[in-house]
């Protein structure tokens, strides 16, 4: 089981200090990611969903070492031995960069407007020591072939591309150094729907071809359902539910997930589906409520929820949920 995990996060916290006043006194923390314990299996697609500001992106960045976790450990297991990436030396970090890559949300700002695609795609290869020009160009062409972009486009500037093409260039650039894990941070949400489907299918094909592991961050539930093998639901920096995709949609446990899934629009007329509309707003991540982070908005809240924080527990069938209702 443990061998099967490419990533294992243990009690990962990413807190940002809130500073106030003349002396920049730290008055509190934004707990973007708070005590998250999850695992990512080899060659699977783990979807991460949640509202804006629930810490999805920060969690992805922590896995990329773009954000240093305030606490907890992130284990990365590429060749059978688990290593804690938060304790990596500079050289180890550099090696790690080859294996885990990220696709960012906004393809319009992910490419440097001053540089031709050729330069953009050549840079990662140069950094990682591919000295032979012919070899670099061969790898660039292979990566572009993967995303169906003609080689002629290498000598164009980003502003000559459409959003979908840019995102595909970004995927090609991330793919050319053959990473093992690809963290896709809202990779398709900036694209329009027809292009979304195109990019998603492309990503699925690439995954099969290259034996990739995806961490797929999104807020669009239908996209996540389409892409993921397993889904993690986050709320206010906490992991509230994690299960196989089919299991989660068929056998939803956590009240938050229930209301989240009830919001998916269904293209069927006369369908009598009850929507659960949550009361109030997401509490501030600076002053989190005591007990279960969701208790203020939960319609099945019990006395116990207000004081005691539920932990993520296995309720069978690989279904994890953090709720007192299922204990």
């Amino acid at each position: 089981m443990a061998d099967n995990n490419i990533f294992r996060l243990e009690n990962v916290k990413v807190w940002f200090p809130v500073q106030k006043g003349f002396f920049k006194k730290t008055v509190g923390h934004v707990k973007a990611v708070d005590d998250v314990t999850i695992n990512v299996k080899r060659n699977e697609t783990l979807g991460i969903v949640g509202e804006s500001g629930c810490g999805k992106t920060t969690l992805g960045k922590a896995m990329m070492l773009l954000e240093n976790p305030t606490g907890g450990d992130v284990y990365f297991n590429e060749d059978g031995t688990e290593k804690d990436i938060t304790k990596f030396s500079k050289e180890e970090r550099f090696e790690f960069r080859k294996k885990v890559q990220m696709i960012f949300q906004d393809p319009y700002s992910a490419l440097n407007p001053m540089k031709k695609i050729y330069t953009e795609m050549e840079e990662p290869l140069l950094i990682h020591g591919y000295k032979d020009k012919a070899e670099r160009e061969y790898m660039m062409e292979q990566a572009l072939k993967l995303v169906n972009i003609p080689v002629d486009y290498l000598f164009k500037y980003p502003h000559e591309f459409s959003g979908g093409q840019r995102q595909r260039v970004c995927i090609a650039r991330a793919m050319e150094i053959n990473p093992k894990v690809l963290v896709c941070d809202e990779a398709v949400s900036a694209l329009d729907v027809s292009i979304q489907a195109q990019v998603l299918n492309l990503m699925k094909d690439i995954q099969q071809e290259r034996d990739l592991t995806y961490v797929f961050i999104a807020h669009d539930l239908s996209v996540v359902q389409y892409m993921s093998d397993r889904i993690l639901v986050m709320y206010l920096g906490k992991a509230v539910e994690m299960a196989d995709s089919i299991e989660l949609y068929a056998n939803t446990k956590h009240p938050y997930t229930v209301s989240l899934l009830s919001a998916i629009p269904v293209p069927v007329l006369d369908r009598d589906k009850k929507r659960i509309i949550l009361k109030g707003d997401v509490p501030s991540p600076i002053n989190k409520p005591a007990g279960c982070p969701f208790h203020e908005r939960c319609d099945r809240c019990m006395e116990r929820c207000k004081t005691e924080e539920p932990q993520l527990k296995d309720v069978g069938n690989g279904h994890f949920v953090a709720c007192h209702l299922y204990e």
Partner: peptide, 26 residues
């Protein structure tokens, strides 16, 4: 803060290189 700078960071580019070959030209 632009995403392309984060991308370069993710590729393991050094600070000096990001400063002078990515941001400076623009």
């Amino acid at each position: 803060e632009e995403t392309y700078v984060k991308v370069c960071e993710a590729f393991g580019m050094s600070n000096v290189k990001i400063m002078f070959s990515q941001i400076l030209p623009s």
